[in-house]
Design a protein around this nucleic acid. Structure first.
Lengths: 194, 194
DNA sequence: TTAATATCTTAACCTAGTTCAAGTCTTACC
DNA sequence: GGTAAGACTTGAACTAGGTTAAGATATTAA
């Protein structure tokens, strides 16, 4: 397994010594997923924080009516998984699944705690990472309320130009908070208007 | 100014020595706001991270059409402000304003950096705080997509029972992502159905 | 190659939520 | 005390987006 991707993402924010790098890598469990396979199923307790090394995963939530609601797409360089379940060790309400053949690195909860205890630089790294992630989520919230579905679709395409090629449209619709039928309408309207 | 509230919120997550407590407090700038006054205006660069000691603040975003979109209410014990502007030192798109007479504590960006440099325990505190905040934001996102306006209003009332008494309804409507008119309708329907 | 299954689109009809305009109730201020 | 301004409600007309159901296009499996 290639660790250069995850290390370069970390060293964008903090500097690591060789020792810190080595220890960090020693904690990670590499795993390969084929398209459609699960990294985490809802109902299970989340034991690992997940880093995407290559490929693409999505996390979704199945509501009472049985509808899947896509919360997040995660491609190379992203952390994903259910933080709430990881923190509280309650069963997760989310499912995380590979949209393409993917390589992921699992950081088990107890190992992560060891890491944070031992090398303070990782407290800093995760503080910065969560802080940035929070900003992203705030933006998505504004996006969801202030824009129409069509605007959200445009913004999605700008932001994730590579995703649309291999993510089924129904999941994109779900991510945008609309039905696949309505996304179809938007796309059709676009075609005729140029 | 009384620092027991902020200290107790911190020591819920990490332990502080007397020295760390003292240093932390020495960085804070107390400020009193009367109802309606601004803690931060959009267009300005955010210099401070804001902690609410008493009272209540709201943060909103004014979109291109001139509509205010309420992002967050923050009452005693909450951190608020614009993290994106604080990080990047670009002008903020948010306004933060007192909904009631309030006491706030400002932690200036440079002081915060000093603090994190000097006492690692605060890296840990803010890491945990941002991590929890992220979970809250994820939940709000699901809430926004998966529930009707009426369900969101019910959940809001359960979650913030004290707010409705002094927050103007139009801001609650904005927080819920609907128009004041439609909130009126929901309330009316509720009355007649019991 | 064919059946089977999942994805995507179309169209008719339906509803949650918006827009706009008017009217009531407070609160604040000269 | 009168009037101005903001907050809340009401109702009628409208629209973004949902629902249902059917058909068209992949994609997969055998």
């Amino acid at each position: 397994m290639d660790y250069s991707s995850i290390l370069s993402h970390i060293t964008r924010n903090v500097q690591l010594t060789k020792e810190e790098e080595q220890f960090f890598i020693s904690l990670l469990l590499p795993q390969k997923l084929k398209q459609g396979e699960f990294a985490q199923k809802s109902g299970e307790i989340t034991c690992n924080f997940i880093h995407v090394n290559s490929g693409c995963l999505m996390t979704y939530f199945t509501d009472l009516k049985g509808n899947d609601q896509v919360i997040q797409f995660a491609s190379s360089g992203w952390w994903t998984g259910d933080l709430h379940s990881l923190n509280t060790q309650q069963p997760s309400i989310y499912t995380t699944r590979a949209l393409a053949d993917s390589e992921i690195l699992l950081l088990p909860k107890v190992r992560m705690e060891e890491l944070l205890e031992r090398y303070q630089v990782f407290e800093r790294y995760f503080r910065i990472m969560f802080q940035n992630s929070l900003v992203t989520h705030q933006n998505r919230l504004i996006e969801a309320f202030a824009n129409t579905a069509e605007e959200r679709y445009s913004n999605f395409q700008k932001k994730y130009p590579h995703l649309e090629q291999f993510v089924p449209l129904k999941y994109i619709a779900s991510y945008l908070g609309i039905t696949p039928e309505f996304l179809s309408k938007i796309r059709r309207k676009r075609m005729s208007n140029g």
